[in-house]
Design a protein around this nucleic acid. Structure first.
Length: 251
DNA sequence: GCGACAG
DNA sequence: ATCTTGTCGC
């Protein structure tokens, strides 16, 4: 698909201050409301007209000196894999909470560059708006490519759930808002994502919920909705789970 | 100084 | 993210 504009290049050689400044610019350019060129209620439908969802995930080869990031993309449409691609890129920037995209967005954009399909929506492993400067990985890449995107994280980076998240029943969702003591660049009370209990066991054992947030061109409620419509039999949405397995296979 | 946080 | 066997339960 198309090349990303240099404006939002996730350059790992930038200073930390420059990275944070870029994230504020990205958050300004991002759209955290529904602006979708497709009907989100049709995600997961089994017909050829249904939206194409791209699941994106990475695996790393640390048996090399410059670590190699293997970024995988699986395009999925109503239960069918319509395309798979990947890219392997050397990375030297470490994982730093809040700056994940400066480690992973480069390899991800390289993989998108080899993708034939133009996905309607992209699901990322990490946060979107659920980020200190409202510019997590899903927001960064979604905005750079101007593709509707959603962040699906397995743990919470910031924000406060509006209520209890213990023993949530399957499909339950709890808004995550900004509180006074949260270090998030958004007004107090803003809903920046949702806790989503995608799967749950009948017994006492607990499965951790997912933390879903808007990346670009989608609102928080619709974001959880589409993730729910991509759900298979596992905790992670199908496109993400398939990309995870493909990334592992490719490394 | 303490806290503490995606992958 | 990655390193890793067995083990508990449906």
């Amino acid at each position: 698909m198309r090349e990303p504009p240099a404006r939002f290049d996730p350059d790992p050689s930038l200073s930390r201050a420059a990275m944070e400044a870029l994230q504020r610019d990205i958050a300004d350019a991002a759209v955290f409301g529904d602006d979708l060129p497709f009907d989100p209620a049709r995600v997961g439908d089994g017909d050829p007209e249904a939206p194409v969802v791209a699941g994106v995930d990475q695996a790393f080869r640390t048996d090399r000196d410059p670590t190699v990031a293997v970024s995988a993309i699986v395009c999925w449409r109503g239960g069918e894999v319509v395309e798979r691609t990947h890219a392997a890129v050397e990375v030297d920037f470490p994982y730093v909470p809040g700056l994940l995209s400066f480690r992973e967005a480069g390899p991800i954009l390289a993989a998108f560059g080899t993708l034939d399909h133009d996905p309607d929506l992209a699901l990322f492993d990490g946060s979107g708006r659920l980020h200190f400067r409202q510019a997590g990985l899903a927001t960064h890449v979604g905005t750079a490519l101007d593709v509707p995107s959603v962040g699906v994280a397995k743990s919470l980076l910031c924000g406060t759930p509006r209520g209890s998240v213990d023993a949530l029943p399957e499909t339950a969702r709890v808004p995550i808002e900004v509180r006074e003591d949260d270090d998030v660049d958004a007004p107090v009370g803003t809903v920046i994502g949702y806790v989503y209990q995608s799967r749950q066991f009948p017994d006492s054992r607990r499965i951790n919920p997912l933390y879903v947030s808007p990346g670009h061109r989608i609102g928080a409620e619709t974001a959880v909705g589409v993730v729910a419509r991509c759900g298979g039999d596992y905790k992670l949405p199908e496109p993400t789970r398939l990309a995870d397995a493909y990334a592992d296979e490719m490394k």
